[in-house]
Design a protein around this nucleic acid. Structure first.
Length: 522
DNA sequence: AAGTTTTGCAACCGCGGATCT
DNA sequence: AAGATCCGCGGTTGCAAAACT
C-alpha cells in the first residue's frame, strides 16, 4: 500500500500542531508546505501519544542538516522511542532482491529524490567545487541550458528510478564481456538508457557477483560497530573490511538497525558514549505516565528491571561507579540488561525530579510525591540486595563465567532474565570495594578492540580492570576479554571519577544540570 | 475495510579528489 | 595552469510493504 499524505484535519495531524519542538516544521507549515510535510511530521513522531517537548529535542546532527532537518530528526526520534518491529517481521527475498509482497516482476522500491542528476561541471557556478547545496533546481537547469550544454539528466531517453530485470541483464552481460571500463560510455555501449553513474551504482551496490546477500550475522554486526568506532561514517572503509557487503548496505543497516539499537541503549551512535541525560528525561516521563508510554518500554521484563533497581536510587556511591556498572551491564547477554545503567540512573534522576516537583505547585506534584515516598521506602530495603563480601560476589561471578562465552546465543535471548539481574547486583559490592580502596587509583577502560580474536563488547565501551588483575580477570568481570585504547581513572579517595573521556567524568554533573532543564527543548 | 503511519532500502544528490584534455 | 570530466563517497529521500488505528 502506498503511503498517502495525511489530511490536514485528521486527528493525528492535529497533534502535530500542538507540538512546539520543531521550529523547522512550523516554519515550513507557514510556507504552505503542509501536504509535503505530512510525511515529515510522521517522521518526527508527532503522532505519538506524548507530544511532550522534552521528548522531541532534535539531535545535533539533525539540526546540522540543511536539507531535511525534519526528516532526520524524525528518524532520530523514532529510533529513540520505538522498537523496530517490522524490521523483524520484514523478510527480504534476497534471491530476487525484492521485499516480500513486492509486485511481481518489479524490483524493490527505490527512487531517491527529485531528478537532479548532477552536472559534472557544476562547480562552474560557485567556483571550484563550491557547495551548491540548496540552489534552486530550476535556476541551475536554466543556467546550464543557457550555456549550451544540457545536464545528463535532461538528455532525452535517459531513464531513472528502479532498474528492471531486463536492464540488469544487459548491464551484467556487458560487464561480464567487456569489464567495467568507462562508466560514462558504458550505458551507451551496453544499450542502456541510463547515465553512467546510475549504472555504476547499480553494479556496485546490487549486481556485482561477489555481493553477499541475506541478513547480517552477529559477527558482522559486531565488526561493523567496532569499525564504526574506529572509522566513523567511512562506510567504504568499513565495507572494505567486510567481504561481500557494500558500503551502501552497511550504511543502511547501520541507520536502520544498529543505530537505533544503540540509541535505545542510551549510547550515542556517533560518539559511542552514553547519552544519559536525554534518556533520563524519557524515562522520567515513563515513570510519571507509565501507561501512556508503555509503547516505549514494551516488555514487562524491562519494567521489572526498573522496579528492581529503584532502590538503588539513593545510593550516590553507586552512581559514581556508573562507568563501571555500565561495563558490567554491557557484558550481560540480553539487550534489556544492557540498559542497566540507564535504569539505575533513571531511578536516581527520578527521585531528584520528584523532589523538585514536590517543591513546586504542579499537576504532577502529588504524583511525584507519591513516587518519592515509594522510592524512599524501597531504599530502606536495599541492604539485602548487596553482598557484604566482595570476594563471594567475585566467586559467584567466576562460577557464572561459562555463560558469558556465548555472546552470539545470548544476543538472541538465550539467557534467563533472573540470572542477569543477579549478576548485575552481584557486581556492585566488588566495584564499591574497588572504589573505596584508597591505596589504588583504579583504572577503568573504555574499550575499543580491533582484533577479531577478542570477544569484545562495545555497547557500553567500558571494561573493568585492576592494577593487579590480568586481562583475563578483567574479562571475568566484564564477560569479555578486551583490549584497551582509552583510559580513565577512578579516584576513590576524592570520591570523584575523572576520565580522559569527559563523557564519563562529567556524568554526574550532566545528570543534574540537564535533568529538568526543559527550556532547552521548547 | 479503509485510511494512516512506520519502516527498510534502493537509488539519487552533490561534493571533492583524481585524472584527463 | 586551468577547466572538464570521471569516479567514489557520505548523505538524503521517495517508494511501497507492513503495521497500526
Amino acid at each position: 500500500m502506498r503511503m498517502r499524505p495525511c489530511r490536514a484535519g485528521s486527528s493525528r495531524h492535529s497533534v502535530r500542531t500542538g507540538w512546539q519542538g520543531c521550529r523547522e516544521l512550523k516554519r515550513d507549515q507557514e510556507r504552505g508546505r503542509d501536504g509535503a510535510d505530512c510525511m515529515h511530521a510522521s517522521r518526527l513522531g508527532l503522532s505519538l501519544p506524548l507530544p511532550l517537548p522534552v521528548l522531541l529535542r532534535p539531535s545535533a546532527e539533525a539540526q546540522s542538516s540543511s536539507r531535511c532537518r525534519c526528516s532526520r530528526a524524525g528518524r532520530f526520534f523514532r529510533a529513540m522511542g520505538a522498537a523496530s518491529s517490522s524490521s523483524v517481521r520484514q523478510e527480504r527475498n534476497w534471491t530476487t532482491g525484492r521485499r516480500a509482497g513486492d509486485a511481481a516482476g518489479q524490483p524493490a522500491a527505490g527512487g531517491g529524490g527529485v531528478s537532479r542528476e548532477r552536472c559534472t561541471s557544476g562547480h562552474l557556478f560557485t567556483g571550484a567545487r563550491g557547495r551548491r547545496q540548496g540552489r534552486p533546481y530550476k535556476a541551475l537547469s536554466s543556467l546550464l541550458a543557457s550555456m549550451g550544454r544540457a545536464p545528463c539528466w535532461e538528455k532525452s531517453g535517459l531513464k531513472k528510478g528502479p532498474w528492471t530485470p531486463e536492464e540488469d541483464k544487459k548491464l551484467v552481460a556487458y560487464i561480464k564481456e567487456h569489464g567495467q571500463g568507462n562508466w560514462r560510455t558504458l550505458p551507451k555501449n551496453a544499450g542502456l538508457a541510463r547515465c553512467g553513474k546510475s549504472c555504476r551504482l547499480r553494479w556496485t551496490n546490487y549486481l556485482r557477483p561477489d555481493i553477499k546477500r541475506g541478513r547480517f550475522s552477529f559477527e558482522e554486526e559486531e565488526a561493523i560497530i567496532q569499525l564504526h568506532i574506529l572509522l566513523g561514517n567511512k562506510w567504504s572503509a568499513i565495507a572494505a573490511r567486510l567481504p561481500g557487503r557494500t558500503d551502501n548496505e552497511i550504511k543502511n543497516y547501520w541507520n536502520t538497525h544498529i543505530r537505533k539499537r544503540l540509541l535505545r541503549m542510551g549510547i550515542d551512535p556517533v560518539t559511542h558514549t552514553p547519552r544519559w541525560p536525554r534518556l533520563g528525561l524519557l524515562d522520567l516521563t515513563s515513570l510519571l505516565k507509565p501507561a501512556a508510554v508503555a509503547a516505549y518500554y514494551p516488555t514487562q521484563v524491562d519494567l521489572d528491571t526498573l522496579r528492581a533497581l529503584e532502590p538503588l536510587a539513593s545510593y550516590p556511591d553507586l552512581l559514581r561507579l556508573a562507568p563501571l556498572l555500565s561495563g558490567v551491564a554491557a557484558s550481560s547477554p540480553q539487550q534489556h540488561t544492557q540498559l542497566l545503567l540507564p535504569w539505575l540512573l533513571q531511578a536516581q534522576m527520578t527521585q531528584a525530579a520528584a523532589t523538585t516537583m514536590a517543591q513546586q505547585v504542579t499537576p504532577q506534584a502529588a504524583e511525584a510525591d507519591q513516587f518519592l515516598q515509594a522510592g524512599t521506602a524501597a531504599c530502606q530495603q536495599i541492604p539485602h540486595l548487596i553482598h557484604a563480601n566482595p570476594a563471594a560476589a567475585q566467586q559467584q561471578q567466576l562460577a557464572q563465567e561459562p555463560q558469558q562465552d556465548h555472546m552470539a546465543d545470548a544476543c538472541h535471548g538465550a539467557v534467563q532474565p533472573s540470572i542477569i539481574y543477579d549478576n548485575q547486583l552481584d557486581y556492585v559490592p566488588a566495584l564499591m570495594q574497588m572504589a573505596s580502596d584508597e591505596s589504588n587509583l583504579q583504572q577503568w577502560s573504555c574499550t575499543v578492540s580491533t582484533s577479531n580474536n577478542n570477544n569484545y563488547n562495545v555497547y557500553s565501551g567500558v571494561s573493568v580492570s585492576t592494577p593487579s588483575s590480568s586481562p583475563a580477570a578483567a574479562g571475568q568481570i566484564n564477560s569479555a576479554s578486551t583490549t584497551t585504547t582509552t583510559y580513565g581513572r577512578l579516584n576513590a579517595s576524592s570520591d570523584v571519577i575523572t576520565a580522559d573521556d569527559d563523557d564519563a567524568g562529567l556524568l554526574s554533573m550532566h545528570l543534574y544540570s540537564d535533568l529538568l532543564d526543559v527550556s532547552d527543548y521548547m
